[in-house]
Computed example of a mutant assay.
Amino acid sequence: MSSPLSPTKTAAALRASARISAQSLLVLVAAAVALWLLGRMWTVVWPLVVGLFLTTLTWPPARFLRQRGWRPALAASTVTVAFLLVAAGFAALIAVPVASQSGELADGAVEGIQRLREWAAGPPLNVGDDEITGAFDSATAKIQDSIGSMLTTVVSGVGSVVNGLVTTVLAIFLMFFFLKDGPRFLPWLTRQLPGRLSFHVPVVAERGWNTLGAFVRAQAFVGLLDAVFIGLGLWVLGVPLVLPLAVLTFFSAFVPIVGALFAGLVAVLIALVSNGLTDAVLVLVIIVVVQQLEGNVFQPMIQSRGLGLHAAVVLLAVTLGGSLAGVVGSLLAVPVAAVLAVAWNYLREQLSEEPREPEGDERSAGPAVPS
């Protein structure tokens, strides 16, 4: 028969639990303060985030030019001007038509939901429950709001920020400086930090940057493939609003799992309203086939797409980001979760390393500090 815990052991266990609880509370308070400060400085943080995302897309050509002997300022200027020309062409050829048809797209999706509601109310389902009716109404409002918000994000490029023009200009200037001076950031950061931080923080920053760049470039490539193939299928079937639906598919790819489901649902609803049930089913088949090709063919070909995040973590991150900051939160949720996972994996690596036995003069000199 086991002996009861002694008062000394009980008190020690309580003290340890209290210490852990207090530390956890401090971490939660620090996180809450950080989120509050982030919200207060959002007009500055958002251009920085957009500039970083743009830099991940434009860094490969800038790096190519620098490797060919171009000076950093000249390479950054050339890539920035080329990016502006491409963006202007995109706005003229795609963004303006999408903006003109955004209302029609939202109305078509809402009408599709209404038709599904009427079909569910009739035989064989005969659904008349008030809760399900309320769910349809909620879904109608949600899709209408989401489509409007996402199309606003596509057209303006700045999401929910009120002063979109200023944000865009700041993001482009930041992208230029990141392209020009980015490689000097880590050496500068190493010189600014004391002790072991001068080694660990730059390593985590470099890994986080590589992960962010891999995610943005891979999602852009996969989103482009999805938009092209699904857009071709919609065009062959004669579904209207092909261009807005293709653009919606492209940008929805930046919200893994949830984005593809959302864009596919909107395309099926538009096909149901305009072409009938048969074409809607064919659109659904096309979307499923493209998604299977993406998951089984495109994704293995893009090895850098892997973020080391479980699908459940991705879903939770997107849900939390969407509830906190709407469409912008959904777009940023997975990259933020991936960077946090990088930091956690590095910390786990450091904690799991076997301590090295000091030799010779190291016994008296103490542990060495990485340079």
Rank of each mutant, 00 (worst) to 15 (best):
T8I: 07
A11Q: 12
A13R: 13
A13G: 07
A16T: 09
S21V: 11
L28Y: 15
V29S: 13
V29P: 02
A31K: 03
V33T: 12
L37I: 12
G39F: 06
F64C: 11
R66M: 15
G69R: 02
L74W: 08
T78C: 14
T78S: 12
V96E: 13
V98C: 10
D107M: 05
G108V: 05
V110W: 15
G112K: 02
I113P: 01
I113G: 00
S138V: 06
K142G: 06
D145V: 04
T153I: 08
T153E: 12
G157V: 07
G157A: 05
V158A: 13
V161G: 01
L165H: 01
A171C: 09
F173P: 10
M175W: 04
M175E: 12
F178K: 04
L179Y: 01
L179C: 07
K180N: 10
L186R: 05
R191F: 07
G195K: 02
F199D: 04
H200T: 03
N210D: 13
T211G: 02
L212F: 10
A218M: 04
F221Y: 06
V222T: 12
A227G: 06
G233N: 02
L234E: 00
L241C: 07
A246M: 14
L248A: 10
T249W: 12
I257P: 04
G259I: 05
L261R: 02
G264Q: 05
L265Q: 00
V266C: 05
L269G: 01
D279A: 15
V281S: 05
L284T: 09
V285P: 00
I287A: 11
V288S: 04
Q303L: 07
H310F: 01
H310M: 09
A311S: 11
A312M: 13
L316D: 04
G322E: 03
L324D: 06
L324K: 04
G326A: 05
V327E: 04
S330D: 01
V336M: 03
V339W: 03
N345S: 11
R348M: 13
R348C: 12
Q350M: 10
L351F: 10
D361H: 12
D361S: 11
G366A: 08
G366Y: 07
P367V: 13
P367Y: 09
P367D: 15
